[in-house]
Design a protein around this nucleic acid. Structure first.
Length: 430
RNA sequence: UCCCUGGUAGCUCAAUGGUAGAGCGGCCGGCUGUUAACCGGUAGGUUGCAGGUUCGAGUCCUGCCCAGGGAGCCA
């Protein structure tokens, strides 16, 4: 008898199969027992009638609790009444482990309770759908970059100093010296781009900021491509191609999951290049037109980003930010040094900044001056300066936040559901 | 760090300053097609913690703790 995953039972109509899974729910009508079984690939109802299986088996199943593990044997049958289209007529059931009283019911729960039980919450249909979409997004990014001949170069997680020196870092002890958890692999990617041309890193990043919003995690994942010989324009071109590719791939391959999440896919269909590009100056004008009192030189807040994004039906680039409010390595616009060759990509529907990127300073003198102006330890950035001393070239890159992208594509309220085990300001359990 | 809201049964919630309750889950029983099944019964409480006001506090006051939402912060 063949063991099958629920997602594939449709290929076994009329055959007797084995399904290994967990009891999601159970209903009974006296002499008929309905077992709703899940195995991670799907859900299926197994129907068991008294008299058609040994009484001992029937009684044992009647006692099974929610989330008990079991092996069901039975014949696959197409049934219009079944939500998935198929049912199993049980010929035998082997309980594996009877679960204790399960904390998560099929009724509503509060966020705090669910987060405390994240290890079990992950088993519910909605969370399973989100994890599958996340997986598809990650795979699509890797496939896209691979097709374009980017090389995956892993950046270190333990770093000797801040990449930008400003934001708060998680400090750790490194054999009696201080080390920090990385907040970006970018500087290392710049080194790698000078070796390999087109590279990217993909890994966790850590920010010890006390941010308490639906868009922030203290530990999150970023993909950071970096390209030698590419300017800001080429950088934005790659971003719109990549984001469009990812969205279309998810629409194509995860339609079932998006439907389970009740995602309005018509809005995602529109995500195709080219994306609109507006300058920081135009963005400020737009905000003022909407009645926002905005001073030139400030960075945008969450509400500002939403107003800007709502002007368009696809993600929008905002480029040419004031040099003063961006990182030290951003290349100033040669025609207008008060703004820099940077660009943020704002997702539609209020999801805010999903990408930040730009062209890096390639002039050694200017970079040295910036490091000094930002009061960064020159010694720690000696290797970074070397990249400009030995064959400097124009180069650009960006960082895309995985969780914000997942939240947007899945249309979620909060990024805490986009990562298996979220790390938040007040949460490091489970 | 600041502002707002909340904390009552395992969970989700109700209770005019006057006997702490319901639904779900648990347990016991019933039902041969249930779809978050349904029906009957039953157990289940230091009302976040510490003070205070009052004849009487889940309810009002003060402090603290925790959570949620937002702000700030944030490639």
């Amino acid at each position: 008898m063949e063991s099958v995953h629920i997602a594939h039972v449709g290929e076994y109509i009329g055959q007797e199969v084995k399904v290994h899974g967990w009891l999601y729910n159970k209903r009974s009508s006296g002499a008929v027992l309905f077992l709703i079984v899940r195995d991670g690939t799907g859900f299926i109802q197994a129907v068991m009638a008294k008299g058609q299986v040994p009484d001992k088996d029937f009684a044992a199943c009647d006692r099974l609790t929610q989330e008990s593990s079991l092996v069901v044997r039975g014949t696959v049958r197409a049934d219009r009444r079944a939500p998935g289209g198929y049912e199993i007529t049980v010929t035998g059931v082997e309980p594996v482990s009877v679960a204790e009283e399960y904390p998560i019911s099929l009724k509503e729960h509060g966020v705090d309770f669910l987060m405390d039980h994240r290890h079990l919450w992950l088993r519910t249909p909605r969370q399973v759908a989100i994890m599958r979409v996340r997986n598809e997004i990650v795979k699509a990014i890797r496939d896209f970059l691979d097709e374009r001949e980017f090389v995956l170069v892993d950046a270190p997680i333990l770093t000797p100093s801040a990449c930008e020196g400003t934001t708060t870092l998680f400090e750790t002890d490194y054999f009696d010296a201080k080390a920090y958890l990385t907040q970006s692999g970018q500087l290392y990617m710049e080194a790698a781009a000078m070796a390999l041309g087109k590279v990217y890193c993909f890994g966790p990043t850590f920010r010890a900021e006390k941010s308490k919003t639906r868009r922030h995690l203290t530990e999150f994942w970023m993909v950071e491509p970096e390209m030698a010989w590419v300017d800001l324009d080429g950088d934005m071109g790659l971003q719109e191609d990549m984001v469009s590719y990812v969205v279309q791939r998810v629409l194509q391959r995860r339609a079932k999951e998006l439907a389970a999440l009740e995602r309005d896919t018509s809005k995602l269909e529109k995500v195709r290049p080219p994306f609109p590009r507006i300058s920081y100056d135009e963005a400020v004008e737009t905000l003022r037109r909407h009645g926002v009192e905005f001073e030139w030189g400030n960075d945008f807040g969450g509400g500002d980003e939403t107003i800007l994004a709502e002007e368009f039906d696809r993600p929008v680039f905002v480029h040419g930010y004031p040099t003063a409010c961006k990182a030290f390595y951003m290349k100033p616009d040669p025609d207008r040094p008060e703004v820099c060759l940077s660009a943020d990509l704002l997702a539609p529907e209020g999801y805010g900044e999903i990408v930040g990127g730009g062209q890096r300073i390639d002039d050694p003198e200017l970079l040295a001056r910036r490091i000094e102006e930002h009061k960064l330890p020159a010694e720690a950035y000696k290797w970074y300066m070397d990249l400009r001393r030995y064959g400097s070239v124009p180069h650009s890159g960006f960082g895309l936040g995985i969780e914000r992208t997942v939240a947007w594509i899945c249309e979620l309220e909060h990024v805490r559901e986009t990562i298996p085990f979220a790390r938040l300001l007040n949460r490091i359990y489970p």
